[in-house]
């Protein structure tokens, strides 16, 4: 593989995301590790969105739905396990679970199912209408969660201890970071392979020229729906991890602000760039952290910086640093 500027940059980023928390660990700065974990998890959500957004050209403003479903999968399973209240008794007794692998599985399955339904309905529209219909589905779930008093409603659900992963102590920040980091790397590798696969190429072709794809006997609808489901599933997995990071889940995870934030991570890093979400998330969290101490009105500075980036750094951060080549392919 040729080392282009972009791939050098990618390696540097993924290495930095590892080195910073390890350094923080040796200096006993656990909060830096928490920030890095947050960055890794939100980047994972962005990687999921980027499959729909960058690869499929599907601008979804409803990915908070999947992020939140993942979060609630964690919250509901863990709350039942913690309170010893069976989740259901038929066809077999199930008391919830505090095992991460099972929680992840449930999160992925349910967010994929939701993405299948939402995608099948939404993909009948396109352009701005697609943006808004995905937003509408997100808002429906948001208002539902607010009034769903069995699981805390607006107050959300809080879990006393982080869920368990066999062989690791997940309460130790660096070990939990390792879990998030490994999953992020796996997802990046998966997204890279997906983009180069026949499916990925067909999807990219459908984005650029629908008729040509139809002419070779593929249906763009099926391609896009598949991409949307994969995208939703990955974002759902990120949601489960995010809820575990905070040991808490609430409807905030489902609000349109969350959808917007995930999208902003992707745009900030560079749409369609494989590592764009990683760059975007890291930059955003860094800015938030650094500016937060300046004054009560720090969001003005954040706004100005975001504006400068979008006006003068075309193609996001990676575009600005690595030039204009395409990442996928």
């Amino acid at each position: 593989m040729m080392l282009t500027r972009e791939s050098l940059l990618n390696w540097a980023m993924i290495a930095a995301l590892l080195i910073v928390p390890v350094a923080a660990w040796s200096l006993d700065e656990p909060f830096i590790i928490t920030l890095a974990t947050k960055a890794a998890i939100l980047a994972l959500a962005g990687v999921g969105l980027n499959i729909a957004l960058g690869l499929g050209g599907l601008i979804s403003l409803g990915h908070a739905a999947f992020f939140g479903i993942g979060g609630y999968a964690m919250g509901i399973l863990a709350a039942h396990a913690q309170n010893y209240e069976p989740l259901f008794e038929w066809p077999f007794l199930f008391e919830g679970s505090n095992q991460m692998p099972l929680i992840w599985l449930v999160a992925v399955v349910f967010s994929a199912l939701a993405a299948l339904v939402i995608g099948a309905l939404s993909l009948r529209t396109s352009g701005v209408y697609f943006i808004m219909i995905t937003l509408a589905f997100g808002q429906m779930l948001y208002y539902f969660a607010i009034s769903w008093s069995a699981y805390g409603g607006e107050d959300g659900l809080s879990i006393w201890v982080r869920n368990e992963f066999p062989g690791l102590n997940t309460l130790d920040p660096i070990q939990f970071f390792a879990i998030a980091y490994v999953i992020l790397c796996l997802a990046l590798a998966f997204a890279a392979r997906l983009a180069r696969s026949p499916f990925g190429l067909a999807l990219a072709a459908a984005r650029q020229n629908e008729d040509r794809v139809q002419a070779v006997g593929l249906t763009p609808f099926t391609l896009r729906l598949t991409a949307f489901v994969i995208s939703g599933a990955i974002t759902g997995l990120a949601g489960a991890l995010f809820a575990d990071l905070n040991r808490f889940v609430s409807p905030t995870m489902l609000s349109w602000h969350t959808s917007g934030e995930i999208m902003i991570f992707v745009i900030l890093g560079g749409v369609g760039r494989l590592y764009g979400p990683v760059a975007g998330t890291a930059l955003y969290i860094l800015l938030e952290h650094l500016l937060g101490g300046i004054s009560d009105y720090w969001q003005i500075f954040l706004g100005v910086l975001l504006l400068l980036i979008v006006l003068f750094a075309r193609g996001g951060l990676i575009g600005a640093l690595a030039g204009r080549e395409k990442a996928h392919g």
């Binding site: 656990p30 909060f31 905070n246 040991r247 808490f248």
Partner: peptide, 11 residues
Amino acid sequence: KPDVAVQIADR
């Protein structure tokens, strides 16, 4: 934001 509050508390 609840998640921000949790992270500040942790820190």
